[in-house]
Nucleic acid binder design. Structure first.
Lengths: 115, 115
DNA sequence: CTTTCATTTCAATGATTCTTGAAGTATTAT
DNA sequence: ATAATACTTCAAGAATCATTGAAATGAAAG
């Protein structure tokens, strides 16, 4: 992932509705949620929800699959993880200082360079 | 950090020039860089660099301090770490699945909820 | 085959964001 | 004081993004 691609993924995260979608999809688990349920969950009209889902799908953050009438969306943890890796490693050089500020992660010592 | 604030910080990261600024500031270390040096580093005209630096400063990602004639910018690792925490913990509920996709971090087991 | 349901796409509009060059502000040197 | 340096702010225009409601598509049911 290069800077331009990462910028696109960050752009996809740069919206409260879309972060709400992600939160809902994490809660929903591996089965995901239908577009309609997501729309209700974030309190947006169908076309608005669809617009935001398309932005997330374009960025690769969500994947969709038709399930009879409805489209089921689920989160791409791989993609989200790749973005975090870009920021931590490629952009910030695995900075120990940044690592230290990331309390959500019970990290051991910084990994060796080039692993 | 709530969804709206996080969206603002993601917006600040949603630009290749600004990611370049961050990269340059990580490399520069704790002393940071002057606005002029940053402009050269990312290959942008002064006013354009200033515009992007203002976006980063508004989002709290960089801090600045006058040093004689020039303004010295440095990265706020705290702020960047807080964003990563928001995504990992508040938004994604500390998801083991996301953790597993974040190879940059040599994590042990997921931290207990509410630590 | 027509209707219904679920969702997307379209079109129009308004709001933000980005870029550029010119003008303005702060700080130091002569 | 004047000039030079280092930035920022402003103004105008182009580009992108978001919201709304209406129309179109795809899948299933009657």
């Amino acid at each position: 992932m290069d800077e331009k691609e990462a910028a696109g993924v960050f752009q996809a995260l740069a919206n409260a509705d879309r972060l709400g979608v992600i939160r809902a999809l994490v809660v929903a688990g591996p089965d995901g949620l239908s577009a309609g349920d997501i729309a209700i969950e974030v309190g947006a009209a169908p076309s608005r929800a669809s617009f935001h889902l398309a932005a997330l799908a374009d960025a690769g953050i969500v994947e969709r699959e038709r399930q009879s009438r409805s489209l089921q969306y689920r989160l791409s943890f791989e993609r989200l993880g790749a973005l975090l890796n870009f920021l931590m490693e490629d952009c910030c050089g695995g900075s120990a200082q940044l690592r230290a500020c990331t309390t959500g992660c019970s990290c051991g010592p910084a990994p060796e360079k080039g692993r």
